[in-house]
Simulated scan of single mutants.
Amino acid sequence: MEIDGIVSALFIGIVIGVLGRLVVPGRQRIGVLWTIGVGIVAALIGSLLAAGLGVADTKGVDWIEWLIQIGLAAVGVAALDRAKSRR
């Protein structure tokens, strides 16, 4: 992976993490770095799932892939918030 791929993955991870955090209702007790980390992981897993389902490479914007990634980020943010609140 080249440097521009890494930078774009970080940017997409930030966007996905923030959108996933906005989807989860209420206040989350996780930091910005955790949100970015969850977003990056959700973006990578969502891309793999979308490729497996055959919806990753379409003409124009891949809306289904974005929805999968945002949904995974929301689940990740909620799970991490729940794990942190139990401590």
Rank of each mutant, 00 (worst) to 15 (best):
M1F: 05
E2D: 15
E2S: 10
E2M: 11
I3L: 12
D4V: 07
G5C: 05
I6C: 12
I6L: 14
I6K: 03
I6T: 14
V7Y: 10
V7M: 12
S8C: 11
A9S: 15
L10I: 08
F11Q: 02
I12G: 14
I12L: 13
I14D: 00
V15D: 01
V15A: 04
I16R: 00
G17I: 05
G17A: 11
V18C: 01
V18Q: 02
L22Q: 04
V24H: 03
V24R: 01
P25M: 09
P25Q: 06
G26E: 03
R27E: 08
R27W: 13
R27S: 07
I30R: 02
I30F: 02
V32G: 10
L33D: 06
L33P: 02
L33W: 07
W34I: 04
W34Q: 09
T35V: 05
T35L: 00
T35S: 00
I36M: 03
I36P: 01
G37H: 05
V38M: 01
V41P: 06
A42D: 00
A42Y: 08
L44W: 09
I45C: 03
I45H: 05
G46W: 05
G46P: 09
S47C: 05
S47N: 13
S47T: 08
L48H: 10
L48V: 15
L48W: 09
L49M: 13
A50H: 11
A51D: 11
A51Q: 06
A51F: 12
L53C: 08
G54F: 11
D57L: 13
D57F: 09
T58C: 01
G60Y: 15
D62I: 02
D62Y: 09
I64H: 04
Q69V: 11
G71W: 07
G71K: 08
G71L: 13
L72H: 10
A73C: 06
A74H: 00
A74Y: 10
V75F: 12
G76L: 01
G76P: 01
V77G: 00
V77D: 00
A78T: 01
A79F: 14
A79W: 14
L80F: 12
R82G: 02
R82V: 11
K84E: 13
K84N: 08
K84C: 08
S85A: 10
R87I: 09
R87A: 13
